[in-house]
């Protein structure tokens, strides 16, 4: 089995210690923000705004008490 050591378009070799995936961090940070925003939007706007919603019988019980 042979493993890749060279790639024609490769200009330089960057090894583990000199590589910081800062671009990945930037991209994935953006992804985090999108996910967090969309979750809040989906739960609190799309879902809770889609009334009527199923509630538990226990809510009434609490109300009576």
């Amino acid at each position: 089995m042979s493993r890749l050591t060279e790639e024609p378009a490769q200009r330089q070799e960057i090894d583990h210690d000199e590589y910081d995936p800062i671009g990945t961090l930037a991209l994935i940070g953006l992804y985090f923000l999108i996910l967090a925003f969309l979750w809040v939007f989906m739960y609190f706007v799309e879902f809770l705004g889609n009334e009527p919603t199923v509630v538990g019988g226990f809510v009434t019980v609490v109300g009576v008490l």
């Binding site: 739960y43 809770l48 199923v54 509630v55 538990g56 019988g57 226990f58």
Partner: peptide
């Protein structure tokens, strides 16, 4: 949603 808003599951 379950505890605070009382949304119960089937």
């Amino acid at each position: 949603g379950s505890v605070g808003l009382g949304i119960a599951m089937i």
